[in-house]
């Protein structure tokens, strides 16, 4: 049995090295060599993968640090030394890679990835997660909406029922929320109409998918919009809350990894990355973490599924002026005081 040390709890604490903040740090003792990973994914979710990795790579101690996607971004921009950076914020990751914070890596595993799941031999996706709606069946009389248009109709028909019972990410605080909101905005005008309608219902804003799911399950919320499906699918079974992939379009988030240019053991980072992308790693990702593996066939089977493209378009909403303008508009639409 491996000796696992949880060095810090779920409290926010400032790291000694820089101005970025981490949430948790765990050290999985293995041996002399130390691989340090900075990730947005919770330790317990990743633990089975780490155990499997250490089983095939004995002698490697793994330091696993969890931070929010903004803090992962900030840490790498401050050139903090990590060997692998894993984040669900594709836009932040692409910005890091575009601005030269990642080193290239090529292997048979990366070559096997579909084109849409990597960028420039620097940024690699290892899971694809639909961005879904969680609805309480009871709140919708057993007929939850299947598209955004249907949702708008239902909300307009009976606004009183939903006042204060719609939840979504706060894009000003949450990186994932910002990404989903901007992708929605660029995908269709329906999302702006939806934002207006939701704005009239005094929505509740969240920073994590987990809390939204909990509140739908507890009945506090009738509907949570833009929730990461991977979190939901694990927790919803048989209850009142159901997961809906909107049929007009459902974004698919790619969880990505890159090797920072400051990596002290870039080789170990690459080894872990290749493990994540290998058939064994992908199987573990899907079975043990609940995050769907990279699967082109699954995308082809669901015509409504739109993977968010890993391309420089993601940089547009990273622009501070663009961000400010977008948030202003979003606030004007959703936060109607």
């Amino acid at each position: 049995m491996r000796h696992i040390i949880i060095a810090a709890g779920l409290t926010l604490w400032a790291s000694i090295a820089g101005a970025y903040e981490i949430e948790e740090e765990a050290v999985f003792e293995g041996g002399e060599a130390e691989l340090s990973i900075l990730s947005t994914t919770d330790t317990e979710v990743f633990a089975p993968l780490i155990a499997a990795f250490q089983a095939s790579n004995p002698g490697v101690t793994l330091r696993y640090t969890v931070a929010t996607s903004q803090q992962v971004f900030a840490a790498l921009q401050e050139d903090a030394a990590f060997d692998l950076a894993i984040s669900s914020a594709m836009d932040l990751q692409l910005k890091l890679a575009n601005d030269g914070f990642a080193v290239p890596h090529a292997s048979t595993e990366t070559a096997a990835l579909p084109d849409w799941a990597r960028w420039r031999d620097q940024l690699f996706a290892f899971s694809q997660e639909p961005v879904v709606i969680i609805a309480s069946k009871a709140a919708f009389d057993g007929k939850p909406p299947r598209t955004r248009a249907e949702l708008i109709d239902v909300l307009r028909d009976d606004p009183a029922r939903f006042v204060g019972r719609i939840g979504t990410y706060d894009p000003m605080i949450s990186g994932a929320g910002y990404l989903f909101a901007t992708q929605d905005a660029r995908q269709s005008d329906t999302s702006w109409r939806l934002a207006e309608v939701v704005g009239g219902l005094n929505p509740k804003l969240f920073t994590t998918s987990g809390s939204m799911i909990s509140e739908v399950q507890s009945g506090e919320l009738a509907l949570a919009y833009n929730v990461l499906g991977s979190y939901a699918s694990q927790r919803l079974s048989g209850g009142d809350a159901v997961m809906i992939e909107a049929l007009d379009f459902t974004h698919v988030l790619l969880r990505t990894a890159l090797i920072p240019r400051t990596a002290e053991r870039a080789d170990l980072g690459a080894t872990f990355l290749d493990f994540l992308l290998s058939a064994e790693g992908q199987q573990l990702v899907e079975n043990e973490t609940g995050m769907p593996r990279i699967n082109e066939a699954a995308l082809a089977a669901g015509p409504h599924l739109r993977p968010i493209r890993l391309d420089p378009g993601l940089l547009v909403f990273m622009d501070p002026l663009m961000r400010q303008q977008f948030l202003n508009e979003w606030t004007a639409a959703v936060v109607q005081d």
Binding site: D99, W119, R120, D311, V316
Partner: peptide, 22 residues
């Protein structure tokens, strides 16, 4: 000044989307 960078403006750069953009 207000700016509005069209998403496609960057997305279409480089036929394969594999170029860094500044």
């Amino acid at each position: 000044l207000t700016i509005d960078i069209p998403y496609a403006a960057f997305s279409m750069l480089g036929a394969t989307g594999q170029d860094r953009v500044f």
